[in-house]
Amino acid sequence: MDFQLSDSQRALQDMARKFAREVMRPKAAHHDETSEFPRAIIASAWENGLLNMNLPESCGGLGLSHLDQLLAYEELAWGCSGMATSITANDLANLPIVVGASEEQKKRLLTPFTQEFKLAAFCLTEPEAGSDVANMGTTAVRDGDHYVLNGSKCFITNGGHADQYTVFATVDKAKKHKGITCFVVEGRPKGLTAGKHENKMGQRASDTVALTFEDVRVPVANRIGEEGEGFRIAMETLDNSRPITAIMSVGIARAALEYSLEYSAQRKTFGKPIREHQAIQFMLADMAMNTHAARLLCHQSAWLLDEGQKNTLLSSYAKCFAADMAMKVATDAVQVYGGYGYIKEYPVEKLMRDAKLIQIYEGTSQVQRLVIAKELFK
């Protein structure tokens, strides 16, 4: 085991930290207040090599390791987790292609993302099939050299701005998860409609919409894997993406801790800074301890992937622990700030709202516990 970062990893981390500090944070409050999509900032992330970090070198990508990606994404989430969610959405949408497509498909569908700024969306969740993916209602019917997609998806990040959609649909509802198949929809073809932007509690900078598919034609050449392989591809995708989602929790928690340390040094009660009161010290100590523990879980789950090992259990440990931890740390940060923590002029109430979503998306904390139990029973 070696916990030292290489020079190149430190350089990547520093670059992402500078981008988060100088580009994301100054605009974070504005985009949180207005829910305006930060397209210019995400485009700047692309220009700086901080978008599509999971693309292989064979497609013109950077070929970064999973651990390398985590180093950058912690910093971006520290800057603004809403913006970071829209940035990581490209990775999530392209992961099924990375893990399940042929080499021809990878080069055709992924290379354009390295040549120009493009956004992608991952389309799995449905109104009646969130955690229960096998209950999927979106259908794909073969028609010659095409499939015809019909159905709806919800809570789709980047859905209103995407240039490409990775869509999961069933070729046979009776087969449940064995009928799920993965497709790539390029552009905004006839029949694909995006709904209104959802007015969310937190992570308001990220675009979240519902999508409707009405007789959307997709070439057979854009089917990823064989019919019925979509569920496996989706689960492998989520194993790969969980460490990234989890590390975003660490970025939020680290920000909450840093703000709390700063404020507790300035705010005085009973004649001394509140950080000199043992009650506050215990809170700060727990915040720091749990943030660091979550980071180590995230790094180990990413390291397993880099070593070619299965990480389902560790990635669920990381996602569940880190998400719950971030919610607790952000809530404690509001408590450290007292009444000021409840006012939008101060930064920690945003962190508390942002943290809540990570307990919900890409597998709720309860679903992660189900995955953990299932893995333990093996």
Rank of each mutant, 00 (worst) to 15 (best):
M1Y: 00
Q4F: 04
S6P: 10
D7Y: 09
D7A: 15
Q9V: 01
L12F: 08
Q13E: 02
D14P: 07
V23A: 12
E36N: 05
A40I: 07
A45W: 08
L51F: 11
L51I: 04
M53G: 07
N54M: 02
P56H: 07
C59Q: 01
L70H: 09
E75L: 02
G79Q: 01
M83D: 02
I87P: 07
I87A: 07
D91G: 01
N94I: 08
A101P: 09
K107A: 14
K118Y: 02
A121S: 10
L124F: 09
V133A: 05
A134M: 05
N135W: 06
N135S: 13
Y147H: 13
S152M: 04
K153L: 03
N158G: 10
G160F: 10
Y165H: 08
T166A: 13
V167L: 09
F168D: 15
A169M: 08
K173I: 08
H177V: 12
H177I: 07
K178P: 00
C182N: 04
V185I: 14
V185C: 08
E186V: 12
E186T: 10
G187T: 00
G187I: 00
R188G: 11
R188K: 15
G191V: 10
H197N: 14
H197W: 15
K200P: 00
Q203R: 13
R204V: 06
A221P: 05
N222M: 00
R223N: 03
G225D: 12
E226S: 11
A234Q: 10
S241V: 15
T245M: 15
I247M: 09
M248S: 04
V250L: 06
R254K: 06
L257N: 11
S260H: 02
A265Q: 03
G271T: 00
K272T: 12
E276I: 01
Q281C: 12
L284C: 08
A285C: 14
M287N: 10
M287Y: 02
M287K: 14
N290G: 10
H292P: 09
A294I: 04
E307T: 15
L314R: 12
S315C: 14
K319S: 09
C320F: 12
F321A: 14
A322E: 08
D324N: 11
V329D: 15
T331V: 08
A333K: 03
V334H: 00
G338S: 03
K344N: 09
E345V: 10
K350Q: 07
L351R: 13
D354M: 02
D354G: 13
Q359W: 12
I360N: 10
E362L: 14
S365F: 01
